[in-house]
């Protein structure tokens, strides 16, 4: 049996800074998607049995990097044109912004985590691959808890909105607080439904799934992922049961 134990969303960095100064100290040098993913993850990891042994599945942003990084990219372009690249030095933190597993690494460092991990890249629809991986790991009895986290931004520009989402699953039945009920994850199924209307975003799809869950009453539930949140190649349906 697989249970959804806790979820969190974060979109306001200022709120993270004010309400969670310890988290802010850990995440302040990262880019927006990573900051928000880590803040959301921190909200849910307290519900795991042991954060150091919880398996972690992390979705890289579809809009990676940062405004600083892209400005730097244009500096490189100009330097190539003038042959002055030899004088350039890159802030190492900006290189880290380009690395796609940053949230995964930062989470592991913060929580002393040595468990199984899976970083999924910034292609559309990978969130549901992450959910499938959660199901596979817990069904196989490989772990007792699995964290799924994602952070993304609408554009790698100053002031662009961002969103971090985290979901914690467990083999132990616990009440999912927003509902006050136990939520079982039964399956994730796919069909060959192609769509051209995909909107790449690592976190938006998961965020849209959560309100649908809260609206649900006791009993079985099927959530059909909106086409814009898929990979454009297959339709996805999530089956749950609310006890």
């Amino acid at each position: 049996m697989i249970y959804l134990v806790a979820t969190a969303q974060r979109s306001d960095l200022q709120a993270v800074r004010e309400s969670s100064p310890e988290i802010w100290r850990q995440v302040r040098r990262y880019n927006l998607p990573v900051q928000l993913a880590l803040a959301a993850a921190d909200d849910v990891i307290q519900f795991s049995e042991d954060p150091s042994t919880t398996a972690v599945i992390s979705l890289a942003p579809c809009q990676p990097g940062s405004a600083d990084l892209y400005r730097w990219g244009h500096v490189v372009t100009a330097g190539m044109a003038t042959g002055t690249l030899g004088n350039l030095r890159m802030n190492p933190t900006q290189t880290l912004h380009a690395v796609d597993n940053l949230a995964l690494s930062a989470f592991a460092i913060s929580h002393g985590n040595h468990a199984y991990c899976l970083g999924l890249g910034g292609a559309p629809g990978q969130a549901w691959c992450g959910l499938e991986a959660v199901h596979e790991r817990l069904s196989a009895g490989a772990e007792e808890d699995v964290l799924l986290m994602a952070g993304d931004q609408d554009a790698a520009e100053d002031g662009a909105p961002g969103l971090g989402v985290a979901l914690l699953f467990s083999v132990r039945a616990k009440s999912y607080q927003p509902l006050g009920r136990i939520v079982r994850l039964l399956s994730i199924s796919r069909n060959n439904t192609r769509t051209a209307d995909v909107v790449p975003h690592a976190a938006n799809g998961l965020a849209a799934f959560l309100p649908a869950l809260v609206e649900q009453r006791q009993g079985p539930m099927s959530y059909v992922v909106p086409p814009e949140h898929t990979d454009g190649l297959s339709g996805v349906t999530i089956s749950l049961e609310i006890l």
Binding site: S58, N101, L104, L233
Partner: peptide
Amino acid sequence: AGLCFSNLSSRFSGPRRMIAAA
């Protein structure tokens, strides 16, 4: 990199998973 993955993956039946572990 995500766009490149999407282009490469479209002819495969699935699962289609993009790994990001540096």
